[in-house]
Design a protein around this nucleic acid. Structure first.
Lengths: 174, 174
DNA sequence: CGCTGACATGTCAACAGTGACATGTGAGAA
DNA sequence: TTCTCACATGTCACTGTTGACATGTCAGCG
C-alpha cells in the first residue's frame, strides 16, 4: 500500500504527530500526489509501529504522539523508492474529465477547456509566489521537500494550461 | 463515483462492450486518468443499465453485449463534466515517489531522478510517434479522444522530464 | 478434429478509504 | 470563568477496488 510509504517518507524527513501528518496531506501532498484523511492515517501509524517501521519518540500535550522512523523503516522506504518503479496506480478525477471532453458537443467542450485554462493559470500564478519563498533554502531536508513539490506542481499546472490552450485552438480551427 | 462517468463518457463517444471498455482502461485512460479492471466494469455496467443511463444496443457472438448511452445518460454525463469541478480526488504513485525524494540521501535521490528523467523521456518519444498517427483526424468523435489523450500524455511526460532535469541540476549544485 | 489462445462475462472474499460520529484537551478571548 | 476553537485521536458502517477463481465461446492452426 502506498499510504504506508507516504507516512514513512514524511516521517523520515522530520518526526511528526498524526495530526501534523494529516495537515501535510491537506497541503501539497494531498493536492498532487496522494490524499488521505486522519481516519486512515492514525490506524496506519499503529500498524507501522506494530511492524517496527516507526516508533513514538515523544508524547506531548493533549495526548499527542510524535513518531519517528526506525532504521528498519528507513531501509524499507529506501528500497521502495529505489526499486524499478513499475506502472504505479493512477487515479485523477481532473484528468479523467479532460479525457472525456471528446464526448461533449464542441461548444460545451470549449467552455470546459476555457475554465480549465483559467483555473490552472491561476493556480500556476499562485504557486509561483510560493516558490519565491523557497528561493534560497537547501534542497534536502524538511524545506527542500516543499521546494521540489512547489516546482513540480507549478510545471504540472503550466503543462495542463498549455495543453488546454492548445486544445482550444485545435477545436476552434475545426 | 467516477468510474460510472468514465464508462458513460467512453460509451458516449462510441458504443462498446464490457470487454472493449476493459481494453480502453488498459490503454491511455488507465495510464493517465483512471484505472479499472473488468471486475469492476461489468457490475458497474449493470448498475448503469438498471438506472437507465446505458442500454444494450446489440448482442454479438460469445455472449457479448454492446452498450450505448441513453438520453438520460448523456445528460448526466454532460452535467457532471460541465459543473464547476471542485478539488477532485488525486492519487498518483509516481508523483508520490517524487515527493518523497527529499527523504533520501542526495546521492540516492540523484540516482532516482536520473531514471525518472530517462523513463519519461523515452515515454515522450514513444508518444510523439503515436501523435503522428492522429495528425489529421478530427478532434471530436472516436479518434479525437485518442488525439487529446496522446497530446496530454506527451506534455505530461515532458513536464516531468524537465522537472527531473531541473531537480538534478539543483541537487548537483548543492 | 482437437488444441490453443483471445474473446467475453461473471462471483466473491479480502482489503482500502470515506464520512459520520465520538471524545477529550489546552490556549486565548471576552 | 466560561466559552470557543484549534488541537488530537479514535471507531465503525458503508462503499469502492482488487485478485483469485470460475465458466464458456469461437477462430485459426496443425
Amino acid at each position: 500500500m502506498s499510504l504506508s510509504h507516504a507516512l514513512l517518507g514524511l516521517l523520515a524527513v522530520e518526526p511528526r504527530s498524526g495530526y501534523e501528518l494529516t495537515k501535510a496531506f491537506e497541503r501539497d501532498l494531498g493536492r498532487y500526489a496522494w490524499q488521505a484523511g486522519h481516519t486512515s492515517i492514525y490506524p496506519e501509524l499503529n500498524k507501522l509501529a506494530d511492524r517496527g517501521l516507526v516508533e513514538v519518540t515523544h508524547e506531548g500535550a493533549r495526548g499527542s504522539r510524535t513518531y519517528g522512523v526506525t532504521a528498519t523503516g528507513r531501509e524499507e522506504l529506501r528500497t521502495w523508492l529505489m526499486t524499478p518503479q513499475r506502472q504505479g496506480k493512477v487515479r485523477n478525477e481532473q484528468v479523467l474529465r479532460m479525457f472525456l471532453l471528446s464526448s461533449l458537443e464542441p461548444a460545451d467542450a470549449l467552455a470546459v477547456l476555457r475554465t480549465i485554462a483559467e483555473h490552472t493559470d491561476a493556480s500556476a500564478t499562485e504557486l509561483r509566489t510560493v516558490r519565491e519563498e523557497y528561493a534560497d533554502v537547501p534542497l534536502t531536508g524538511a524545506e527542500g521537500f516543499g521546494q521540489l513539490a512547489a516546482e513540480y506542481g507549478l510545471r504540472q499546472y503550466e503543462a495542463v494550461r498549455d495543453w488546454a490552450r492548445w486544445a482550444i485552438t485545435q477545436l476552434e480551427k475545426a
